[in-house]
Design a protein around this nucleic acid. Sequence first.
DNA 1: AAAAGGGCTATTGTCGACAATAGCCCTTTT
DNA 2: AAAAGGGCTATTGTCGACAATAGCCCTTTT
Lengths: 222, 222
Amino acid sequence: MDRAKLPKIEKMPADVRALGVLRGRIIDGSIPAGSRLTEVQISDEMGLSRATVRTALHQLAQEGLVSLVPYTGWTVVKLSRQDIWELYTLRGAVERLAASLTAASAEPAQMAEVQQAFDALEIACERKNPNEIAEADFGFHKAVVDASGHSRLRAQYGLIEHQIRVYIRSSDALIADSKEILDQHRPILEAILSRNSTLAGELSEDHNLREGQKLTVSVPLA
Amino acid sequence: MDRAKLPKIEKMPADVRALGVLRGRIIDGSIPAGSRLTEVQISDEMGLSRATVRTALHQLAQEGLVSLVPYTGWTVVKLSRQDIWELYTLRGAVERLAASLTAASAEPAQMAEVQQAFDALEIACERKNPNEIAEADFGFHKAVVDASGHSRLRAQYGLIEHQIRVYIRSSDALIADSKEILDQHRPILEAILSRNSTLAGELSEDHNLREGQKLTVSVPLA
DNA sequence: AAAAGGGCTATTGTCGACAATAGCCCTTTT
DNA sequence: AAAAGGGCTATTGTCGACAATAGCCCTTTT
């Protein structure tokens, strides 16, 4: 009896689902920076208990997206100039290590994924859709980090990425000169493919510092 | 009516206290790696509710000291060779950034703290007490990170440090050749004091990679 | 004897209720 | 009018109970 495979039913813990929803709303801006969140309201709306929502909020706090003032309330973080600087310098350090590890010792399969992520970026740049470009840009960086085979680096990168996404969306800072974007990423790809570990690391760090610089000067903040 | 100031009464949330106690026990080895932890037992012993203990355990999981298998239980993590490698490469990347930032732009007061931490390390080395040396060693690294004025770097460093401490204690890997320890740290201090940002970063990273190497080869792991 | 199946137990997952607290607002005092 | 004080309200902090689940163990089937 041959038939199409049934779709896998998603069975996720309630707190993880709540986390995903909240994070999505914060990143896409439908819950703006500076908003207050209350456990009761969220749990009512989602039909979950406060304990569950609370777990999700604590996780979001770990990710740096919300902050808790004891006995008072949760607020969605507002990123200052200093925060953006911190995020990009930190991402620079993380990606420096990731790129140099990947260049030094990634398996061919992982290398192929990095190459593929770059190809996707090229295609996105041709289409000139800013959102798509931004996604592909994130995708390339993530591919390099994933290829490093360093689980803590991946976890760390995830946290930073969430926060950067919040900022990028909230500031609409999608500076998408597609030509320049490709020119900035190509050398990194080449250094990695040619197994030049030192260069790959340096280029990655420089790229991040430049990006961070650009964002902090171009977009004034509270 | 002049009198000695009364000592400040510590008023901490219960979950924070539980977290501190558990972390301390894991780090000092009285709860060994691989142990199972159950929420009920802990909450009974501490006289707290499960919810409170659970919050603390989740935090410990974030710090990488325990891990949760759904509907099954919590266990204290056992660090593998790969984990040690990850910790030291990651710490290398974090400290590279910290040292170069500190060298580039720390205030005199912060510089003085770094100097002071090094002096403490010198004194500890003279006394040849392994535990004291290890503490002063951690202290120096922490001082450099603190001086960088980068809050996310500090937070990140804290997490890594906890995990390294677990490993160092559990393996008794306190390789304390006091002469060598000073020789390894002095150039870092000097590069920072002379505001040589690039060199400070490089030396810090190298130092960590060497340490990590030493620990992974000298101590066989499960 | 081996395999399959089902129930049991230990444990986390989720819930709703009450306790503790921060900070506003109103009243009282000076 | 300004300052001090106290109560009120909104919110998180903490609790104990019940639900859901994983995985072991015993029984049954082959």
